[in-house]
Design a protein around this nucleic acid. Structure first.
Lengths: 171, 171
DNA sequence: TATTGTTATACTCTATAACTATA
DNA sequence: TATAGTTATAGAGTATAACAATA
C-alpha cells in the first residue's frame, strides 16, 4: 500500500468530543491486508474520482453547477448553436438527461434554446450574456480545480498521465 | 482530442433499421470544440471509471456482485474477523452502507457475522466455505478484469500509472 | 458520553420506456 | 420509419439522522 492513506472514510458524527480520545476504536485491526486492491486500477480510479469530486466541490462548488453542467456551459460557449443531442454525445450523457441539464441552465438564464428553422426537431443552444459571464467564471474555477487535483504530479509528467488514462478509455 | 473517440454515448433505441443510414444525424456539428476538457483530469477520470465499470460488468458481472461487494469478499478473506467498521474504513464506505453490503453477503451464504465476546459492539466477519470458494472466483475474475482495463498500457508503465493516480488521491 | 451497528429515509446521478413533433 | 426532444419513472449507489446496544 506504500504510503497512501486508505482510511478517511470514517464518519464524523459526534464532533462534540471532550478533547480526549475521540478517534474510533480501530485497535482491533490497524493493519489491513488489502490483497489485490493496491494493484487494482479500478480501485484507484474510483478513489481518484472521489478526490476529484471533493476538489470540484471546493473549487467550483460555489457556482452551484454540477460538473456536467459546467462542462455543458463550456462547450456551448465554444460551439454556438450546438444541438442537445450533439452536446449529449460529446459529454457522454443520455438524451433525456440532457433535457434536465439544459432546462436547468435555461431556467437560470445561462442558455437559450431555439428550434432550427430548417429542421424543427433540433433544439439549438447558445449562451446568454449572463451565460457568457458564467462561462468565464467556470473556466477560471475549472483551471484552478484541475491544477489542484494535479498539484502533486510534476508538470512534465502530466501529459503522460492524461495519455495513459485516455488509453484506458479507448474502445 | 487526438485520436480518442468521444461519442459512443449515443442511444441505440431503434435497432430495427432498414440497413440504410441508421446513424444519428450529426451533420450539424461533426467537429465539436472540447475547450478545456481534453486537458481536464476530472473529465478523463470520469470516463475511465465508466470504462472500468463496463469491463467489470463483462469480466465479473456473472458473479452478481457489485464492485464493493467483490472487494469486501477479498478483504474478509485476507483479514479474518475484521469488523464492519474497519472494513468500511478500508473500502472508503460508510458504516450504514456496510450494513447493507454485509447483510447481502450474509444472506447469500458468503460470510458469517458474530459479535466479539470481549466487546459486543463489534460485528466480526468471516468467510464461509462457500464464501471462500467465491473469493477464489472473485480473485480470478478481478485479475482478468484488471488485465483487460490495462491492456493498452505497457507492463513497464503500469506501476508508474498506478503511482500517479495514487498521487491524485492522497490528502 | 462515545462507539458499533442498525433502520428508515432521502438524495444524486443516470438510464429506460413511452410519447410528441418533425422529417 | 427514423430522429430530436420530452416526460414519467425507476434503479443504482450512497449518505444522513435517529436510534439501540454496549462500553
Amino acid at each position: 500500500m506504500s504510503n497512501v492513506k486508505l482510511s478517511a472514510a470514517r464518519r464524523q458524527r459526534s464532533k462534540t468530543g471532550n478533547g480526549a480520545d475521540a478517534e474510533p476504536h480501530l485497535s482491533l485491526m490497524e493493519n489491513v491486508n488489502y490483497d489485490l486492491l493496491p494493484n487494482h486500477i479500478g480501485f484507484w480510479i474510483r478513489r481518484a474520482q472521489l478526490a476529484v469530486m471533493k476538489s470540484y466541490e471546493e473549487h467550483v462548488g460555489d457556482l452551484d453547477l454540477r460538473p456536467v453542467e459546467a462542462a455543458a456551459i463550456l462547450l456551448i460557449g465554444q460551439n454556438k448553436d450546438i444541438s442537445q443531442i450533439v452536446l449529449g454525445s460529446a459529454l457522454g450523457t443520455d438524451q433525456s438527461t440532457m433535457v434536465a441539464i439544459c432546462t436547468r441552465l435555461e431556467n437560470r438564464g445561462y442558455i437559450e434554446r431555439r428550434r432550427l428553422p430548417e429542421d424543427r426537431r433540433y433544439q439549438l443552444l447558445t449562451l446568454t450574456a449572463e451565460g457568457s459571464r458564467a462561462a468565464v467564471a467556470v473556466r477560471k474555477r475549472l483551471i484552478a480545480h484541475n491544477e489542484n487535483v494535479l498539484r502533486r504530479i510534476p508538470a512534465a509528467e502530466r501529459k503522460k498521465l492524461l495519455a495513459m488514462i485516455q488509453n484506458l478509455v479507448q474502445e
